[in-house]
Design a protein around this nucleic acid. Structure first.
Lengths: 130, 130
DNA sequence: ATAAAACTGATAACTATTATCGTTTTTATT
DNA sequence: AATAAAAACGATAATAGTTATCAGTTTTAT
């Protein structure tokens, strides 16, 4: 893989935010720095960065979201405000290990956990409606 | 919600299989029974059935997969053969409960867990390559 | 300096899904 | 049974997200 100014800018942008952006959202911000960058370049590089282990991604309702944090963690998605929060693995078990036990002979590569519901602030608003 | 012959056939098909089909796959099989059924009808009804609690769905690589089994369970997706296996919750913790603790004040509605890797048979083939 | 490989922007193509609309079916009421 | 409103239908257009193509540019190794 060769160096590219565009890829560097994309990774820099992704690493500097924690909102789990879509490709289109990364495109919008990187465009401020590189006005003539193409959306295809953003897609290409986000995919390459994930493949390379520099980024991660997960799907939410059919749309891919990217994450500059490649450390194992879960995601909480609020169905009202749409925000995606990190959930730093507070679980007292190693899901990967347990899964390997449940599937003897299989190779576990990745575990995606998406918790959905109402975040604290949206839930508070919801409760006040009564 | 009124009765519809198409919806009944769609739910019957979904309940009778365990391969977590996409809308297009349900369409293909239901078409054998109702040749003039529309793909839009399949989408409409799968969505309605999920909303109604008679079915469930999750996204895999941008595509929605449907599940006639609405009991809590996880999914193992093989990256080679594409098959999706059910993982009946052998974990000794209640993820929902733990999540609620990690997010005090939030309301947890649903937890989607997708484990990806190589299933036992594909992993065996992979190992024999050496 | 040069040539191959990798990467780019622009855009066409594709896949999955949703929206629209005129027609048909279902359901409740006469 | 007739009827009218609501719900659902099939066909298909529209949309969203993503991937593929391709000619031109940048990077890298020599």
């Amino acid at each position: 893989m060769n160096y590219s100014y565009q890829r560097e800018a994309i990774l820099f942008d992704l690493k500097g935010r924690c909102d789990h952006p879509t490709a289109a959202q990364v495109y919008e911000t990187v465009k401020q720095k590189i006005p003539n960058i193409s959306l295809a370049t953003v897609y290409r590089n986000l995919t390459a960065l994930c493949k390379n282990g520099d980024a991660a991604s997960f799907y939410l309702a059919g749309t891919e979201h990217f994450d500059g944090n490649v450390d194992s963690h879960l995601h909480f998605s609020c169905s009202k405000c749409g925000r995606i929060y990190d959930v730093f693995n507070s679980f007292d078990i190693d899901i990967t290990e347990k899964t390997a036990k449940a599937f003897p002979g299989a190779a576990v590569n990745r575990i995606t956990v998406i918790i959905s519901g109402l975040c604290e602030s949206c839930n508070k608003i919801e409760k006040n409606k009564n």
